[in-house]
Amino acid sequence: MKLDRLLFGDNQFFGVNHMSEEKARQSAMRFQDTGAIIDVIDSAYAAGVRSFMCTTHDRIAEVAEHVRTHPDRYDGFTFLPCMPYAHKYANAVTEHGMLGALRHFLPDEGYLNAAMRGGRAFAGKDVDGLVTLLVDSEMKMFRGLPTPVVFLQNVVVDLLLGLRFDAAFSIFADHVRSRYGAEPGFITMNLPLALDTLERAGVENPIVCSNMNKLAFRVSGGTAAYDEVLATRRFRPIAMSVFASGAIPAREALEWVRARPQIESIVFGASSRQHIEATVDLVQELWGETIAR
């Protein structure tokens, strides 16, 4: 499966901005109606972008429903879900405690099946059933839509890395492949450690998305360590935060990425048609390939 050069991200829609709370709040206001999100996605589609890398936020369910009901307008458009939307779980843990939160999120659909898988898992202290249940509950919103890659979010990947909970990665990878026919992807702030762990867990040539930028912003362990794994390890790198939330001018940021030919794709967020088109134009120029269709 080939990854598109440009993947459209969704942080900008949900009040995430690593530079400014003010900007984050402004964008939360601007995008509080899902129609405003869809308008921007339509601009990205018109500019030739076909991959939408999105959190499993409740609002994304509305975007998915829109695409599902207008298939003629979104030929070739794919969702690359990133799960879970962590704040939903973190807030639930604060409110209900660890196990309370887990119960809260077990799906009601196919209740008997869920209870069987979850119940057996609970009794055997076996996480396979729980992991697959949680994945299925997050994937419900994408039914009937193409999801070629399914990502595990960095907060979960990185938590599991530190805990050395290797088995969770292979359980996730196997389930995503077998049930959804999708490639598993892993988002991390700790690329070298993630590669070591995924290798131990038996996940071969994994798709791994991590911060890579000229400022070394959230490049844990430093650029030299990242350059070394790019040169020596077998994996499919996706770069995120290449502009470091706007701290690096676009051309300078993308030239830095272009100098690392191993990087297959770039995730970028943008809130306006002009910004999307400018990014597409710059990538076409620097990579010498066509994105606009």
């Binding site: 690593h18 530079m19 702030m189 400022l215 912003f217 701290a247």
Partner: peptide, 17 residues
């Protein structure tokens, strides 16, 4: 000034430097 410039990188990142 932003956190991008003011934050010292860490060797392992989880939820915040």
């Amino acid at each position: 000034a932003n956190t991008t410039a003011l934050t010292r990188p860490v060797d392992f990142y989880l939820r915040g430097e």
